[in-house]
Simulated scan of single mutants.
Amino acid sequence: MNALVSKIIDAHGGLQQWRKFSSLRARLNQGGALWTLKGHPTTLSVTTVTVDLRREWASHSPFGPEAMLSSFEPGRVALSNADGEVLEELLDPRSTFAGHTLETPWNELQLAYFAGCAMWTYLNMPFLLAHEGVEAEELPDWSENGETWHRLKITFPADILSHSAVQTIYFDDAGLLKRHDYDVEIAGGTPGAHYISGYIDVQGIKIPTSRRIYPRQADGRSLPEPLVVSIELSDIVLT
């Protein structure tokens, strides 16, 4: 494993501790301009998110005012009722975003796909870097708001579906993540700068509770507005 990857993972609690668990559940509060832009201003504003730590799967409950349950995996997304009855499903969901731009609205299944894919990535980082086939390349340091952060360019293998195959993580001297950049392929490749803060210790794992995502410019600098997505996590449990 890349030495810097090892440092980052160790700073967040280490692989040995992480591998004691198979799922993460948290109370989720979300805001930002994206949800209204996509036609779902309050569907996932307050919900509970659960992600698998060993395979790519995530769920939100309740999903919308009908209190549905979503199920995301790379090749399928579905919405079920409280009794577990599948109400809608979509196979090969990523293909349905072809030709989308940032302004293209999503249906509920597409929203479930995006939210599941995003939260699975966020809540499995940085331990996802230890996945077989993930490549890490050191980039020059980055200065922002009077701080200097180290950077790694991350390339995911084909069996991991995320916002984009190539992403960049920023971390401080202690190895804690500060920022995470990617291009949202299913929204026309929209570039995002994702800021990470509010670390707490949960069962021996360092987990950030606050995230803010802003537009990213061509020079790598973020714009102060609009706030694209805000994420607040609480009641985090590893099982």
Rank of each mutant, 00 (worst) to 15 (best):
V184P: 15
A130M: 03
S95A: 15
R76S: 02
I169V: 15
R76N: 10
K206N: 03
H180P: 11
H40E: 01
H194A: 07
T239L: 03
W18I: 01
A26S: 09
W35I: 00
G192E: 03
Q17W: 07
G175F: 04
S234W: 00
H60D: 02
I200Q: 15
G198P: 02
S22L: 01
H150M: 05
P208D: 02
W142N: 05
Y214F: 15
I236R: 07
T47F: 11
H163P: 06
L15H: 01
L90A: 13
W57A: 05
E225H: 14
L53H: 10
W142R: 08
I196D: 07
R151Y: 05
A112F: 10
I205Q: 13
S70P: 12
K178S: 12
T104P: 15
D159E: 11
G14N: 01
P74D: 04
K20N: 05
P208E: 03
T155Q: 11
K7Y: 02
V51I: 14
A136P: 02
R55L: 08
W142M: 06
E73F: 06
L111M: 14
D201F: 06
N124C: 11
L4Y: 12
Q203F: 01
E88T: 07
S234R: 02
I186T: 09
P41E: 01
A130N: 07
L102A: 14
E88D: 09
H12D: 00
G189E: 04
P62F: 05
M1D: 11
S59M: 10
E137C: 08
T155A: 09
L53D: 01
T239Q: 11
Y122D: 05
L15V: 02
L139K: 14
N145R: 15
P157G: 07
E103R: 14
R94T: 10
E144H: 11
E56R: 12
L69G: 07
I207H: 14
G39E: 00
R216D: 09
G13N: 00
E144L: 10
R221I: 04
L123S: 03
G32N: 04
F72M: 09
S59R: 11
E103F: 15
L152F: 14
F114P: 00
E147S: 13
F63D: 00
M68L: 15
H40L: 08
E89W: 08
K153P: 10
D183P: 06
G14T: 01
G146F: 10
D219H: 14
